[in-house]
Simulated scan of single mutants.
Amino acid sequence: MSAATASKQECIKNCQECQTTCADQLSSHCLVEGGGEHVQQEHVQRMLDCIAACKACIDFMSRNSEYHALYCKACAEVCKACADSCEQVTELEACVACCRKCEKSCSAMAA
């Protein structure tokens, strides 16, 4: 396996982890808390954007699309915004960690 293929597979894995972790935390933590910072519109939107960006990025990389780098760049930006938002909310350390990891690998794929 080439280094580029290994990097892409790692990025896909990180995007999948980020997508599922954010979806789980949003539905099982933020919406369950039912108030305050957990359900502020901007925070929930950041999490939904991150879930969608990761899904799109996985799709483009899995298909070996020539446009995957564009999606990886966007995904990195969205993951950063989501991590920044999750840092402001209590008990979302898992989201912060996976978003930062995904941001890093997507940034590398976009370069």
Results as ranks from 00 to 15, higher is better:
residue 82 C to G: 02
residue 53 A to C: 08
residue 67 Y to K: 12
residue 57 C to V: 03
residue 50 C to F: 01
residue 66 E to D: 13
residue 8 K to S: 15
residue 34 G to Y: 03
residue 68 H to Q: 13
residue 10 E to N: 14
residue 48 L to A: 12
residue 97 A to G: 07
residue 1 M to C: 10
residue 34 G to L: 05
residue 2 S to E: 15
residue 77 E to T: 03
residue 106 C to L: 02
residue 43 H to F: 10
residue 37 E to I: 06
residue 50 C to N: 03
residue 58 I to V: 15
residue 30 C to W: 00
residue 18 C to P: 06
residue 91 E to V: 09
residue 70 L to Q: 11
residue 91 E to F: 06
residue 79 C to H: 01
residue 107 S to D: 11
residue 40 Q to L: 10
residue 92 L to Y: 01
residue 5 T to Y: 07
residue 102 C to S: 08
residue 2 S to I: 12
residue 64 N to E: 12
residue 42 E to C: 09
residue 78 V to Y: 00
residue 10 E to T: 14
residue 71 Y to V: 13
residue 18 C to E: 06
residue 104 K to I: 07
residue 25 Q to M: 15
residue 76 A to C: 01
residue 40 Q to D: 14
residue 44 V to A: 09
residue 65 S to E: 08
residue 86 C to T: 02
residue 75 C to D: 05
residue 16 Q to C: 11
residue 39 V to C: 11
residue 52 A to Q: 09
residue 52 A to W: 00
residue 86 C to L: 05
residue 30 C to K: 01
residue 24 D to Q: 10
residue 107 S to R: 07
residue 19 Q to D: 12
residue 37 E to F: 01
residue 16 Q to M: 14
residue 74 A to F: 04
residue 83 A to W: 00
residue 25 Q to T: 13
residue 102 C to I: 04
residue 32 V to Q: 10
residue 53 A to G: 05
residue 80 K to H: 08
residue 33 E to R: 07
residue 12 I to G: 03
residue 88 Q to S: 11
residue 111 A to C: 10
residue 86 C to D: 06
residue 23 A to G: 12
residue 43 H to P: 10
residue 5 T to G: 07
residue 66 E to R: 08
residue 8 K to M: 15
residue 45 Q to H: 12
residue 89 V to H: 01
residue 97 A to D: 10
residue 80 K to M: 08
residue 11 C to T: 09
residue 93 E to Y: 03
residue 80 K to Q: 12
residue 108 A to I: 05
residue 70 L to T: 11
residue 99 C to G: 02
residue 47 M to L: 13
residue 111 A to I: 08
residue 49 D to I: 02
residue 18 C to Q: 07
residue 27 S to M: 11
residue 66 E to S: 13
residue 68 H to Y: 12
residue 13 K to Y: 09
residue 23 A to K: 06
residue 50 C to S: 07
